[in-house]
């Protein structure tokens, strides 16, 4: 008897939870905050300051989504995830969205059953070498010892690159970025390979950055973007179009400075009007308020502002826009139209 009651209770709990999980949007609204998975710490992308406030390029995506859904960019709780726990955290429903410089790959999208909603940073894998090694191309690295982080796509890219170029290497597998840098600086390996953005950021922290150079070859495509679970298309749409709103805002010249003013009343540009909700009912179609994009943009600025503030050339990370410029400037950042 007791057993039946207990299992009955568990089954009931499972069912109610199952129903509740059907709509992430309703869950988030009921909770009153967005649960966002970020990296435990990656300079420029997600970092907590001395007071425990999170900030960074990936964090800004979470804040924009929170602002779009709940109207408050501060209504986010961050779950620090490691490379090993990130996917289970998302799959099990512990987090609503994962914004943790995660590469969009076929198997992650299809096999792990996630939906990548877009790309917020186009990265690629590069090599850093000491200048005194006298290497000017990655193809000269025959027989080199290579420091590499385990459990990431970089490991496979490295093997592919050396195999296609028919040269040999000796991998030195290392767990974390910080450890890999120490090994590299101590001379335990000839070169260190990871995402080029990470290499540039790390090089800037060296005592003597001029003594190291990043080789010109980019050996892989690493489109990094936020992702959500399969099976809740409405939620995926919300995250996708919150991100697109930031990108479109930059293209259309809507910034955190002028977004309030532009959203007051309809202007001359119909696309801006639709984006900011002064015309049409795009927000309603998403199940959000009409000014969802205005809130998302007001949270931290448009894509360009977020880039410049967190990882741009004026920051210590010092990344150029490069591939991540708007398509109008020859980059790959491109938002489908808001209509």
């Amino acid at each position: 008897m007791k057993k039946t009651t207990f299992f009955g209770a568990v089954a009931a709990a499972t069912m109610t939870a199952g129903f509740a999980a059907a709509g992430t949007l309703d869950d988030v609204k009921a909770k009153g905050f967005l649960q966002c998975g970020v990296s435990t710490g990656l300079a420029g992308f997600s970092a907590a300051d001395a007071n425990g406030n999170w900030d960074g390029f990936d964090v800004a995506v979470c804040r924009a989504v929170a602002a779009a859904v709940l109207g408050d960019p501060q209504a986010v709780k961050f779950t620090p995830t490691t490379g090993k726990t990130r996917f289970t955290a998302l799959a099990s429903g512990e987090i609503d969205i994962l914004a943790r410089n995660t590469t969009w790959t076929f198997s992650r999208d299809v096999d792990l059953k996630f939906t990548f909603v877009g790309v917020n940073y186009y990265d690629g894998q590069g090599f850093i070498v000491p200048k005194e090694l006298g290497v000017s191309s990655a193809k000269d690295l025959d027989g080199a010892t290579v420091c590499i982080q385990t459990g990431t796509t970089t490991e496979l890219n490295l093997a592919d690159f050396f195999r296609t170029n028919n040269i040999s290497y000796e991998p030195v597998p290392i767990e974390t970025n910080a450890e890999a840098l120490q090994q590299y600086l101590a001379g335990a390996c000839d070169t260190y390979t990871t995402d080029a953005s990470g290499l540039a950021a790390s090089r800037a922290t060296f005592e003597n950055p001029e003594a190291h150079t990043i080789l010109p070859e980019i050996i892989s495509k690493e489109p990094l973007g936020p992702l959500v679970r399969h099976g809740d298309d409405q939620w995926a749409d919300i995250v996708r179009w919150s991100l697109n709103a930031l990108i479109a805002a930059e293209e259309l010249g809507v910034t955190s400075a002028n977004v309030k003013e532009s959203a007051m009343q309809a202007g001359n540009n119909p696309e801006i009007n639709r984006l900011l909700g002064t015309e049409g009912n795009l927000g309603e179609q998403l199940g959000l308020s009409a000014d969802f994009a205005k809130n998302a943009i007001a949270a931290g600025g448009n894509y360009g502002e977020i880039f410049a503030k967190n990882i741009g050339e004026s920051t210590p990370i010092g990344l150029a826009r490069g591939l991540n410029a708007q398509w109008t400037d020859g980059g790959l950042i491109y938002s489908p139209p808001f209509r």
Partner: peptide, 18 residues
């Protein structure tokens, strides 16, 4: 390793501060 911020986990967070 499972993402809790004990002192070792916090070193990573602190290093992420530019």
């Amino acid at each position: 390793i499972i993402g809790l911020l004990d002192p070792i986990g916090l070193t990573n967070t602190i290093r992420a501060d530019s």
